[in-house]
Each structure stands twice: as structure tokens, then as C-alpha cells.
Design a protein around this nucleic acid. Structure first.
Lengths: 128, 128, 128, 128
DNA sequence: GTGGTCTAGACCACG
DNA sequence: GTGGTCTAGACCACC
């Protein structure tokens, strides 16, 4: 399992971790029931603080993605988030933001679709 | 000119302001040469801190979008940002983030394209 | 005897075990003098750590509920806990917590009473 | 506003804080829109670490109870939590736990109802 | 050994 | 000055 962090990136490390793990699940590199490294191990591997790694796991546990149990590390509980009204609204907001930024840069519908599909293909192809 | 901020939103107010102004330009509600209110006026209208409004203008000036003149408000310099390698990479990163999040929620290519096109249409139709 | 644990639950496994056994006693499925499986047997049946099962028995023994005999399992000593000042205060604290949480969710007296009585009925009816 | 922590209690400080604030809201000592002390102030007043206080606020913000904004402290957003299926199930589980414990101690329906109503009255009467 | 919590102290972004 | 994040190091409950 390979997780790489970008310390220059503004987004918090724990948030990058959350997204990375979700991406690994998307790529089927992590399946339901699979176990993840212990917080301590992960923190050491990535050269970050224990608390930061713990926070990422905690967030994922609260979202129902991970099951973290004492003495047994963490494992994947669910391979997809629930898509309720709140999540839908949130996603829509992000789409709006991206679209407006793209439009301002002169990037239109076709190019945007292509970028998305390219990324989707990249994720799916990496599935063994 | 109508700008609405969402104070509950996590994204910084100055960033919301930057995006709102870009959106106004996208909608042709702001054309090249149009003038914007002074920082003081804008801050008062929106009920935000003066520094916050000033920062938004500063960011836009740095990107070459606005021309800010001491004490006389600002005016639109350019109606589109430059799309260099850095911006391209940045946009791509955002596309990746959005795509992965959508995929995790079970939202695929078709739905994503539809959301984007819907937003693009919304922006373009609002142009008088 | 049927004990089911919820590993996803935050509450410690040994604590769940303690409560489960108390519930079995409440339901008269375990009567005074009845014997329980050995720690080893119980741990194996439930797929939990031996220490965890041992701790549950230890707690129950400390409360005077179980009599644990080395290597020969345990047996029910008493079918009810003593209700002293400490226990009373403890129970009151739990009631307060529950009440406040319910109130915050808009669940009032009537609904709370109904939930409790429903549970009490469930327990008593399962008594053969 | 009065918040008291019990350091002997097993429940985490940040959790006690979360519950205390919810209780203050229940008692109408905190109304929608009311502002709370800054994280630093709260931490100092209670003699706890800044991070611990911040975590409590963060949890409440994630639940939509508090609105925490940069430079402006926190304020009450909503005076009640959403009561969806997950919350209902959770509450039911707690009721079951409490009921079983009470039953084991010989505390029955009537006494339990009385304790709850007493607490409910206590909370409501403290409302000015 | 494992995760959970807390403290202390520092830095940064934001208003 | 405010909240947000991260680090370092410690202690505890649990398995």
C-alpha cells in the first residue's frame, strides 16, 4: 500500500490521509475487511506524528469507512460513503467551484469532461 | 452587483470573495474596465472585516484580474486568468480530488458531466 | 445460552460481556446456581481474547454475581446486584446523561418512558 | 455560563464538554445565536489544554450545533440535533443498557420513570 | 502492543 | 487575537 503526502500542499496532513485512503479503496487496493497498518506504524512510515495519523483514522471511523478496534488495528468496514442530501449538496458546491474556476481559465465542458474521464480511467485501470 | 457569502462554509471568506468576483466576470456582469466598490464600501456592504475584503482584492490584483487604485476602488483589468503550466497542474489536482470524492460516493462519469454542464449552462444563461 | 457482541460498538468487549450476562440473569435464562462455561470455552466461542473473557468474569465476581472456581468455570452466586449509595449515584448519573441526550434530540418524557417499558417488557416476556 | 468537569470520571474531558454544552442548550442558558467563549478562554477557565477545548468545539461544529469561525469565536447554530435513524438506534441502545442495568439492581419501571422526570423537570425549571 | 486521550508548546492562516 | 494544525511526549484502558 502506497500513500504519499505533499507537505507543501495547504490541505492538512490528516485530510490528505483521509483522501488517500479513500482513493485506495476506490482503486480496489483496499477491499472490505482488509486491514490497515497500526496508527503507530503509519505515522512512522510517513514520518508524521502519531496524533495526526490517529486523527485521520478517527475521521474515517466516524464516517463509517473504517473500523478501529483496540489491540487489533483498523480495517475497512465499508467501501463507499453514504450519499445523502447533505453529501449531494456538498458535492454540487464543489462542482460549481471547479466549473467556475475552469471557465475563468478558458477551460470548457469538453476539456473538463476529458480530464475527469481520464482520472476515472486511471483509477479504474489500476484495479488489478 | 450581488455577492453572497456563506459564513458557515469552511472556505475562507476572502477566497469566497475571489471566486464570487470571478463568477461575476464569467457571467459578464463585470466587463473589462468596469469598476468595483472601494475596499471600505465592499467590507461594509458584506459586513466583513476590512482586511478580509482588502485581501481578496490583493489576490485578484496579483493574478492580474483587477487593477487596484489607492482610495479609488478597483477596476477589471482582464476577464480571464492566464492558463499556464502551474494553473494547469493546479486545476488537474482539483479535478482529481473531485473525481475521487465523487467516485467514492458512487457518482460516476455521466452524473458528474451532467452536473458540470448544468452549472456551465446556468452561468452562461445568466449572461444578459 | 446466547451472547452476541458488537465489535463495532465503542464500549469495551469485556463490558459488553458483563452486561450480556446480567441481561441473561434478568431474563431468568441464568438462575442462581447455574454454571457458566470456562473462560477458555467462552473466549473461543465468542472469538475473543482469553484475557477479555477473564476480565468480564473477574468484574462479575467482584460484584458478587459470579463465583469463579479455578479451572472449573463459574456459577451464578446472586441474581441481583446490591443497590447501595454508590450504585444509586452511578445510576442517577447515567439517567441524567440519557435524559439530556434524549431531550436534545427532541425526545421527551412520554417517548422515553415508552422505550424503557418496551425494553422491560421484552426482557420479562422472554422469561419462559 | 457554568461548566464543571469531573476529572475522575472515565469519560473524556472533550466529551464531557460536549455534553455540558448540550445541557446548557437544553436549559435555555444558551440560545440560538449566543456566542461562546473562545477556545483559549474556555481552556484557561477550565484549566485544560487548548487542544482539548478545541476538540469539543470541533465535534459540536461537525454535528451542526456550533458555528466556529476564524477570529470571531463560536456561536450556537442549532439548538437541537437531527434525530435520524442512526440517532434513534443509538438512543435505543442506550435505553436498553440503562434499563437492563436498572432492572438488575431491582429498579423498575416506576422508579426509572420518576428519575427521568425528575431530571427533565430539573432541566426545564432552570430555564428562566 | 494497540488505540485513546491529554498536555505543552509552536507555527500558520484568517479576520 | 482567533481558530487550525502539527509535533513531542506521556499516561491509561484494552486486547
Amino acid at each position: 500500500m502506497l500513500i504519499s503526502l505533499d507537505l507543501r500542499d495547504q490541505t492538512p496532513i490528516y485530510e490528505q490521509l483521509v483522501q488517500s485512503i479513500k482513493e485506495l479503496i476506490n482503486r480496489k487496493e483496499l477491499l472490505e475487511g482488509d486491514s490497515l497498518p497500526t496508527v503507530r506504524q503509519l505515522a512512522q512510515d510517513l514520518g508524521i506524528n502519531l496524533n495526526t495519523a490517529a486523527r485521520a483514522y478517527r475521521e474515517l471511523a466516524k464516517q463509517g469507512i473504517l473500523s478501529v478496534r483496540q489491540g487489533r488495528g483498523a480495517s475497512v468496514l465499508s467501501t463507499h460513503g453514504r450519499y445523502g442530501p447533505a453529501e449531494q449538496e456538498n458535492l454540487l458546491k464543489k462542482v460549481k467551484r471547479l466549473t467556475n474556476e475552469a471557465l475563468f481559465l478558458g477551460v470548457g465542458s469538453r476539456r473538463l469532461h476529458a480530464m475527469i474521464d481520464s482520472e476515472l480511467r486511471r483509477v479504474k485501470e489500476s484495479r488489478i
